[in-house]
């Protein structure tokens, strides 16, 4: 009797954390069939590569949980990257000020998105499609067609240290994941967001302030995206106005959806999101090792997210 109940508990735990299971399967397949995949160096590399995408995926999760989307994240990255370059090289501001200002820029962009979505009640995909264009235009305008290479060491130190032979960015990503987990799974705010995503009308009737909450999610997402941009800029050691772009947004959305976040809102699982980011980087690793056409990556991601979408849509039919 108790063994069948235990079985049910295990089954439902597996169901809820499916992406982590998928990750394990991916890694297992990789270790078995892809040469050198199972090496320590490769695993370290995957973790290193997955740090920034994990942060962007978590940022996207905040938006997805209320049933919205942000197609402009890639362009927020562009704007923050080039601003970073200008602040560091031209204005020669101290690193911590630069980081703070960049976060503010990200939050401001998010706030603008949030305003149009909440106050004007325009569907988020149109707002962020439009704002993405504006942001990339701004980034190009601000850059005056220059990129900034060779960023100063005191700035790069922010993301260059290594602990246990892992770059500090991995730990930043884990910190962000921890904070996000606390907010979304343990805080009242997270409860409200989940309720809004599942049933906005009922949540409003229960006194949850929809507009304020959605606005805050856009601001948080913008800030996290800016943080991600700083990490990426330091890693490639180049502040450029075309860092990120539409590929970036797509990767973030794909990682989130593979990580079990439903596009209709309400369902989110931070550990699974991190797993999602790791999965897509595993795929990239396979492509690299097997020397496949690099561009296959985007196509495969697309098919992966398509499968996840179909599964999600079919599951939601029962809702």
């Amino acid at each position: 009797m108790s063994s069948s109940r235990n079985k049910n508990v295990v089954l439902s735990a597996v169901k809820q954390n499916a992406p982590i299971v998928y990750l394990i399967i991916f890694v297992a397949i990789g270790c078995l069939f892809v040469p050198n995949f199972g090496s320590k160096a490769n695993f370290l590399n995957i973790l290193r590569q997955a740090a920034a995408p994990a942060v962007s995926c978590i940022a996207m999760t905040f938006i997805l949980i209320t049933g919205n989307i942000d197609l402009s994240t890639g362009y927020i990255v562009s704007l923050v990257s080039i601003s970073c370059g200008i602040m560091v090289k031209t204005l020669e501001l101290p690193p911590y000020l630069v980081i703070l200002l960049c976060l503010l820029i990200g939050c401001a962009a998010g706030a603008a998105n949030g305003l149009f979505v909440t106050v004007c009640e325009i569907p988020s995909f149109i707002v962020t499609l439009g704002s993405g264009m504006i942001l990339t235009g701004l980034a190009q305008l601000v850059s005056q067609n220059t990129s900034y290479h060779d960023l100063p060491d005191n700035f790069r130190a922010f993301a260059k240290a290594e602990i246990f032979s892992l770059p500090i960015t991995v730990f930043y990503a884990l910190l962000v994941a921890l904070l996000a987990w606390i907010i979304l799974h343990r805080a009242v705010f997270g409860r409200e967001l989940r309720a809004l995503g599942l049933n906005a009308q009922a949540s409003r009737m229960a006194g949850i302030k929809e507009k304020k909450s959605v606005f805050i999610t856009f601001v948080i997402s913008g800030g996290l995206t800016a943080f991600c941009s700083i990490l990426m800029t330091i890693r490639v050691n180049c502040a450029q106005p075309d860092l990120g772009g539409s590929n970036f947004s797509f990767e973030a959305i794909t990682a989130a959806v593979i990580g079990g976040t439903s596009l209709l809102g309400g369902r989110v699982n931070i550990p699974c999101c991190v797993a999602g980011a790791l999965i897509i980087k595993c795929i990239e690793s396979w492509i690299n090792i097997l020397n496949l056409n690099y561009y296959l990556y985007q196509a495969i991601l697309g098919i992966a997210i398509l499968i996840a979408l179909i599964a999600d849509a079919l599951k939601n039919r029962e809702r």
């Binding site: 009242v188 409860r191 309720a195 599942l198 049933n199 009922a202 949540s203 409003r204 009737m205 949850i208």
Partner: peptide
């Protein structure tokens, strides 16, 4: 429609208005 979140659990629904 707007009384309960049918996709959520009993506990979650019960405390929904009283979170703060």
């Amino acid at each position: 429609i707007d009384g309960l979140i049918t996709a959520a659990g009993v506990s979650e629904n019960l405390v929904l208005s009283a979170l703060h």
